[in-house]
C-alpha cells in the first residue's frame, strides 16, 4: 500500500500504512525466521551406529519420528559408519567403546539400572568356556582389525578366530551351520535370539564381560540441541537401544 502523507488524514493513513506494512514485514520476518529455524533443524545430522533387534531401517524410522527435521542415518556396518563420520555429522550415538575408538568426547552416557555398562555372554550349542573357545561370531562394532582385541578382552585374554557379522540375527546361522564354537552378544539379546530357534543353546559367562552402553557425542553447536531431546525419547526407543536414562 503506498504511503501518502500530504494531509493530516493522509499522514494518519500513512502512519497506519507504515505500521501495517511494518507489521507485515515483522510477521514475514518471524515466519521467515521460523522457516529458517526449521531449515536449520533439518540441517542437523545425527548418525547412529547401534544394532537393534528390529533392524537398522526400523530403528531409523523410530528416530526420524522422534526427531522431526533432523536428518538421521542408522548404520549397521562398522566400516560404513567409520567412513561416513568423516563427513562430520552434528551428533553421533554408538556404544561407548565405538565412540572411544573413534576418539570422540563422551557428552552423554546411557545408563540402564544405574549402570553405564551391560553384561556380554557367550551363546553356543555345546558347552564352551571363555578360555577354551577357538572361534567366535560377533557383531562387528569396531572394524575387522580391532574386533579381535575387543573379543580377547571379553574372554579374559583368549584370542579365538573372530567371524564378524552385521546384525544380531546373523549370529544365529553361525550356530545353526556350526561355523563357530560360540557367539558373543549382550545378555539382553539372548532371549530374543533363542526365541528364533529350536536349537538348544547354552549361555556361558565371560570373565570381563562388561561393555559400555550407548553414548552420545555432540560434534557441533547444532548437535547440542539433541542433548535435551535424548532424555525425552520414547520408551520404545529406549528399549531398542538398551538405555533407560542418560548422564
Amino acid at each position: 500500500m503506498p504511503i501518502r502523507s500530504s494531509t493530516r488524514a493522509g499522514a494518519r493513513l500513512g502512519r497506519r500504512a507504515f505500521v501495517s506494512t511494518a507489521t507485515l514485514f515483522s510477521f514475514a520476518f518471524l515466519v521467515g525466521s521460523g522457516a529458517r529455524s526449521v531449515s536449520a533443524d533439518a540441517a542437523v545430522t545425527f548418525y547412529v551406529f547401534l544394532h537393534a533387534q528390529t533392524g537398522a531401517q526400523a530403528l531409523q524410522k523410530m528416530f526420524e519420528d522422534a526427531l522431526p527435521g533432523v536428518s538421521v542415518r542408522v548404520f549397521s556396518r562398522a566400516k560404513d559408519f567409520e567412513n561416513s563420520v568423516r563427513q562430520r555429522p552434528d551428533a553421533v550415538l554408538a556404544l561407548l567403546p565405538v565412540l572411544q575408538a573413534q576418539g570422540y568426547a563422551i557428552h552423554l552416557q546411557g545408563q540402564r539400572g544405574g549402570s553405564p555398562a551391560e553384561r556380554y555372554v557367550l551363546l553356543s550349542q555345546k558347552p564352551v568356556s571363555a578360555s577354551s573357545v577357538r572361534s567366535i561370531g560377533a557383531v562387528d562394532l569396531l572394524g575387522r582389525s580391532r574386533m579381535p582385541a575387543f573379543v580377547s578382552k571379553l574372554l579374559g585374554g583368549n584370542s579365538p578366530e573372530v567371524t564378524p557379522v552385521t546384525k544380531v540375527a546373523d549370529l544365529l546361522p553361525l550356530l545353526q551351520f556350526d561355523k563357530v564354537d560360540a557367539v558373543v552378544l549382550p545378555e539382553r539379546s539372548v532371549g530374543w535370539l533363542k526365541s528364533r530357534t529350536r536349537v538348544p543353546l547354552q549361555v556361558s559367562d565371560l570373565p570381563s564381560g562388561q561393555v559400555g552402553l550407548p553414548a552420545m557425542s555432540f560434534l557441533s553447536p547444532a548437535g547440542q540441541r539433541l542433548r535435551e531431546l535424548a532424555p525425552k525419547w520414547s520408551p520404545a526407543i529406549r528399549a531398542e537401544i538398551g538405555v533407560d536414562s542418560w548422564r
Binding site: S76, R77, D80, D140, R144, P164, T166, K167, D170
Partner: peptide, 15 residues
C-alpha cells in the same frame, strides 16, 4: 540375501 552383508561375508572368506 542381504547384499551389503554378503560383501562382508565374502570378505571373511577371502581373509
Amino acid at each position: 540375501p542381504d547384499l551389503s552383508a554378503l560383501g562382508v561375508q565374502a570378505a571373511n572368506v577371502i581373509y
